[in-house]
Simulated assay, not measured.
Amino acid sequence: MTRDRLHPDLIEIVLELRTFIPPAQVADKYVMSAWADGLLQTRLKAAEVDTLFISGAETEVCVLATVMGAIDRSYRVIIVSDAVCSGADSTHDAMLGIYRSRFGMQVETVTAEEMCAAVISSRA
């Protein structure tokens, strides 16, 4: 994405999720895979994280690269299906189908509403 061309509000964490930061952390990346520079892995290991909720753009490019790296590193991977997007609806939809079918043993999908409800109930 072209961060320098977007209004900062368009890439900010939505208000409803800001209450989870901390302990949740945001990790910006500047290449396709979030694993490329090693910083994410270092942060996750230090925090003893075992589950990742993944959102972002593009579903079939950057999200895919990050998901594959997470699977390779044995994380529980949960894709927030309505928090990923693409420039092409057809490949976005196809990739969500692949995540649910081909990667069904390694990847879970939830909606943002389902994720928030689960996180809120776990805090109660």
Rank of each mutant, 00 (worst) to 15 (best):
M1R: 11
M1I: 10
R3V: 14
H7F: 06
L10S: 14
I11E: 14
E12V: 00
E12G: 02
I13K: 01
V14H: 09
L15A: 05
L15V: 01
L15Q: 03
E16K: 06
L17M: 06
L17C: 02
I21E: 04
I21F: 01
P22D: 07
P22K: 04
P23K: 02
P23N: 03
P23C: 01
P23V: 00
A24E: 08
A24Q: 09
Q25R: 04
Q25H: 01
V26D: 01
A27M: 15
Y30L: 09
S33V: 01
S33C: 04
S33H: 03
A34G: 12
W35Y: 13
A36G: 10
D37F: 05
G38Q: 09
G38K: 03
L39N: 12
L40H: 10
Q41H: 13
R43T: 10
L44G: 12
L44I: 15
L44E: 14
K45W: 11
A46S: 15
A46E: 14
A47G: 02
V49T: 09
V49H: 05
D50C: 11
T51K: 11
L52N: 09
I54H: 02
S55R: 12
G56T: 11
A57T: 14
T59D: 08
E60Q: 06
V61W: 11
C62R: 09
V63F: 07
A65N: 06
T66R: 01
M68I: 04
G69Y: 02
I71M: 14
I71N: 13
I71T: 14
D72E: 13
R73W: 05
S74I: 07
S74G: 10
Y75M: 14
R76F: 09
V77C: 14
I79W: 03
I79Y: 06
I79M: 11
S81A: 15
S81V: 08
D82I: 00
A83T: 00
A88Q: 08
H92S: 05
H92W: 03
H92A: 07
D93I: 03
A94E: 12
A94T: 12
M95Y: 03
M95L: 05
L96Y: 02
I98N: 02
Y99L: 04
R100D: 06
R100V: 04
R102I: 09
F103H: 07
G104S: 04
M105N: 08
V110C: 05
A112Y: 05
E113T: 11
E114M: 06
M115L: 07
C116P: 00
A117F: 01
A117S: 10
A118L: 07
A118E: 10
I120Y: 01
I120A: 08
S122I: 05
S122C: 08
S122T: 08
R123A: 10
R123K: 08
A124R: 07
